[in-house]
């Protein structure tokens, strides 16, 4: 068994883990719902990827945790922010000057990298869930639809409807008002996805090569399509976009071990 490098992304909605071998190939990966106990879920994904790889803890040469729960893991682990990790993970697939748009459960981020992969600057959403996965989850709950049903319905939309509210709560009030006026559910759902895209484009200027990552893009490709319509450029989508933060963390673990 070669030495392994672990990256864990303990996000607000989902926890992701990636295990790399000494050739930086992914040998195990997992995604589970985070719940409330970051320590427990950190342990759970660790055990899951070790099981997949047929390895145990002593094979892990270095581990890096990222995401909101990055300080809560109870095994030896370095930590790095999700900004750097998403940037690093995206750069692994697109090694050039890129702008990463990561739409996560609680944060939306725009991360600009130079041609050498260096973090040039970043923007994050304010203290507000509008434009994040949490917004989408809340809308799905209020409409009594699953996230995959949202995706299907958006594809059936016949017209563009604009939502004007900034606030998640008032957005749903607006949806109710539009529904009373006879706007079809698929059009409302597409409007919800468009609201996310609108919030993303308000965060910062999107130019050059755009890479879209995160759980929202992984489960709702409509968002990437709408983003393409908005900015006039097709965003690049890496394989397994939800795992990019964990992959970036694992790559940092690899580099940390190399430099040690």
């Amino acid at each position: 068994m070669s030495e392994l490098y672990l990256g864990i992304d303990l996000g607000a909605s989902a926890t992701k883990a990636v295990l790399l071998d000494s050739r930086r190939q992914i040998v195990a990966r997992t995604v589970v719902a985070t719940g409330l106990d970051f320590t427990r879920v950190g342990q759970e994904v660790l055990e899951a990827v070790l099981r997949q790889a047929g390895a145990d803890m002593e094979h892990i040469r270095c581990a890096v945790a990222t995401g909101y729960g990055r300080k809560n893991v109870h095994f030896p682990c370095l930590s790095k922010t999700e900004i750097s990790c998403h940037g690093r993970g995206a750069y692994h697939y697109f090694p050039e000057a890129i702008t990463v748009v990561d739409i996560g459960g609680q944060d939306t981020k725009i991360i600009r990298l130079g041609p050498d992969g260096r973090l040039l600057d970043f923007q994050m959403n304010r203290k507000c869930a509008a434009g994040t996965g949490a917004f989408l989850e809340e809308m799905a709950r209020r409409l009594d639809l699953s996230l995959s049903e949202l995706e299907q319905l958006a594809g059936q939309s016949q017209q563009d409807v604009k939502l004007g509210s900034y606030c998640t709560v008032f957005t749903f009030t607006e949806i109710l008002a539009l529904s009373r006026r006879g706007i079809a559910v698929p059009d409302l759902v597409k409007a919800i996805f468009n609201a996310i895209v609108q919030r993303v484009t308000e965060l910062g200027v999107l130019s050059g090569k755009i890479v879209a990552t995160g759980g929202v893009v992984a489960y709702n490709p409509t968002v990437a399509n709408l983003l393409a319509n908005r900015i006039g450029v097709d965003p690049l989508i890496p394989p397994e976009p939800q795992l990019i933060g964990a992959l970036g963390a694992a790559l940092f673990a690899f580099e940390e071990a190399e430099h040690a």
Binding site: Y68, K80, T81, E82, I83, S84, L119, L120, D121, M124
Partner: peptide, 10 residues
């Protein structure tokens, strides 16, 4: 905290 840590990393 995330924003500040990322800033220092930058």
């Amino acid at each position: 905290v995330t924003r500040l840590e990322a800033f220092i990393e930058q």
